[in-house]
Simulated assay, not measured.
Amino acid sequence: MEIRWLEDFIALARTRHFSRAADEQHVTQPTFSRRIKLLEEEMGVTLINRQTLPLSLTSEGDEFLALCETITEGVRLTRDRMRDISAGHKRRISVAAPQSLLARFLPEWLGSMGFEGRMQPYLRATGWVAADYFKALNRGECDLALCYWPLERCDLELDTSACSYRTVGHERLIPVTATTAQGAPLTTLPASRQAPAPWLAYPKLGLLGAALETHLARMSHNTCLSVKSENLYAASIKELVLLGYGMSWLPERTVRTELENGTLTRAGDSRWDVPLALRLYRHQQHHHAELDALWSELSSLRSPA
Rank of each mutant, 00 (worst) to 15 (best):
P107F: 04
F115K: 07
E108V: 09
A131N: 14
G88H: 06
F134Q: 06
K90L: 08
P107N: 00
R83N: 08
N49C: 06
F64W: 04
L110A: 08
F115M: 12
T72N: 05
E108W: 03
S100K: 10
K135A: 13
V129Y: 04
L39Q: 06
N138G: 08
L53E: 12
F105L: 01
R50T: 11
H89Y: 07
M113C: 07
L67V: 10
R83M: 09
R118W: 12
F64S: 00
E108R: 09
C142V: 05
I48D: 00
E41Y: 06
S86V: 10
R104W: 08
K90H: 04
A136K: 03
I85S: 07
C142F: 03
V95I: 11
G74P: 15
V45T: 13
V75I: 15
G111Q: 11
G61P: 00
A87F: 11
G44I: 00
E73L: 13
R83I: 15
W128H: 02
A96H: 09
A125Y: 03
I93P: 02
V129S: 06
A97E: 01
D143R: 00
G140T: 01
E73V: 04
L102H: 14
E40W: 01
G114R: 09
Q120K: 07
G61H: 06
D80W: 12
N49W: 01
A103P: 09
E40V: 02
G127Y: 04
E73W: 09
Q99M: 13
S56M: 14
V129E: 05
A136L: 01
E42V: 13
G114M: 15
T72A: 02
R139A: 03
A125D: 02
M43Q: 13
L53C: 09
V95Y: 04
R81N: 10
F64Q: 08
G61Y: 03
G140R: 02
D62R: 15
M113F: 02
L67Q: 14
E60K: 12
S86A: 13
F64N: 03
L137N: 14
T58R: 03
Q99G: 11
E40S: 05
H89I: 14
N138T: 09
E42D: 12
L39R: 07
S86C: 05
A125M: 04
L77H: 08
T46C: 15
K37L: 10
Y122S: 13
E41A: 14
A87S: 12
S94E: 14
L101G: 01
F105Q: 03
S100Y: 15
D84A: 08
A87M: 13
M82F: 10
D143W: 00
G117T: 09
A131V: 10
L67C: 05
R81H: 14
I36A: 02
Q120W: 02
Q120R: 14
A96Q: 12
P121S: 00
I71W: 07
A136R: 07
R79W: 15
P121M: 01
A66L: 11
P107S: 01
G74Q: 15
V129I: 14
T72R: 02
I85R: 14
T72G: 01
F115N: 04
L123Y: 06
A96K: 12
T78P: 05
T78F: 06
T70I: 07
T58D: 05
T70F: 03
I93W: 11
R91T: 14
A131F: 13
F134R: 02
M113Q: 10
E116D: 10
